[in-house]
Design a protein around this nucleic acid. Sequence first.
DNA 1: ACCAAAAGTTGAACTAGTTCAACTTCCTTT
DNA 2: AAAGGAAGTTGAACTAGTTCAACTTTTGGT
Lengths: 196, 196
Amino acid sequence: MANSIPSVIDFFEKFIALTEEDRVKITSSFKEVKVKKRQFIVQPNFVATHRNYVVHGAFRSYVVADEGQEHTIAFAIDDWWITDYNSYIFQKPATMFVVALEDSTIMQIDYEKEKELKASHQKFETFFRTIAERGLAFYQRRLISNLTQTAEERYNEFESKYPLVSQRVPQYALASFLGMTTEYLSKLRNHRAKKK
Amino acid sequence: MANSIPSVIDFFEKFIALTEEDRVKITSSFKEVKVKKRQFIVQPNFVATHRNYVVHGAFRSYVVADEGQEHTIAFAIDDWWITDYNSYIFQKPATMFVVALEDSTIMQIDYEKEKELKASHQKFETFFRTIAERGLAFYQRRLISNLTQTAEERYNEFESKYPLVSQRVPQYALASFLGMTTEYLSKLRNHRAKKK
DNA sequence: ACCAAAAGTTGAACTAGTTCAACTTCCTTT
DNA sequence: AAAGGAAGTTGAACTAGTTCAACTTTTGGT
């Protein structure tokens, strides 16, 4: 199994150039954590203390509405990041759950360490600025899909954009991510299959 | 009428401490532009060259779906920012329109100037990182509303959170922002009025 | 290997929100 | 001040997606 350290470092290097010293700094800011399937890494009412990089595995963040329905906000598989950003950024209580969908390995950085890292060198500030901007653009595109497309169109788009995710997450989680019921997604899938 | 320079400067000072030199640098990075009602500041297929701070006035960004319906993505009134972020951040062609809903005054910074500003001092990198993070958190909350709430709940929430915006934007724009038809919003408003 | 619980399927009844069409009111422009 | 268009309203018919319920399949724990 691949070592986890290179994998986060590689991610940083997509956006900023690192010296050997920087790599050491990053390595000491993160800690590797093994997470079992069904284990929570963020829970409502507790402050999200970490930003989590998924080395390998799969996670899902979701909120629970008044009547108890779960709504998936994000998925994260290998090489993605996940947390309750509203909680982490503002360091206030979370409203989301973040749960492992598989046995996983993650690299966690906590809020204070991240702050030190950013303060230590401009390039780290640049790194976090860049991923925040990309996250912003991502959520904006997602909102546009939700406003402009039908359930079936959203499903098709997801399948073609993220075939790997689609295979690894349970259907009820995908349905609530796409903003539809699990029954309806089941129908979409099966009607589609028949048409072939 | 208030001078536009102090107003952007004040915004920066919410997040970072500025020296007199910094203020001069900011002032020279932005240019004031007067925009007439119905004038576009971003259009599809053109790269969004500026990030726009609204000194006073009102704007709306929207996309046009296949069948021609407009979907409002964001509003911006006094002291807010607006652009097509997906276009601006990646400097690729826009998919949105951004149009003035009133005669307005804005302060524009272009992509290159912003880059220089960020490169010139860590604090500016911090500033843009902070607003990107807040934007991300904002869009994530908006997505949650869209997934978890009914049309009526979204309308009520908007009215109580942004009463000033609600008064200044046309109803068809608000309806499409909230993800419903203008007819349905009209019914919600009037049924509500009767119940009193 | 077995059993209980969780996940997924299918059909029938339903409803929140859309569509269409006709009308009224409010802005702009001249 | 008038005219024409854009914005908003109302009701009736409709539909995409939900809800409910009964069932089958898969998964995980002992």
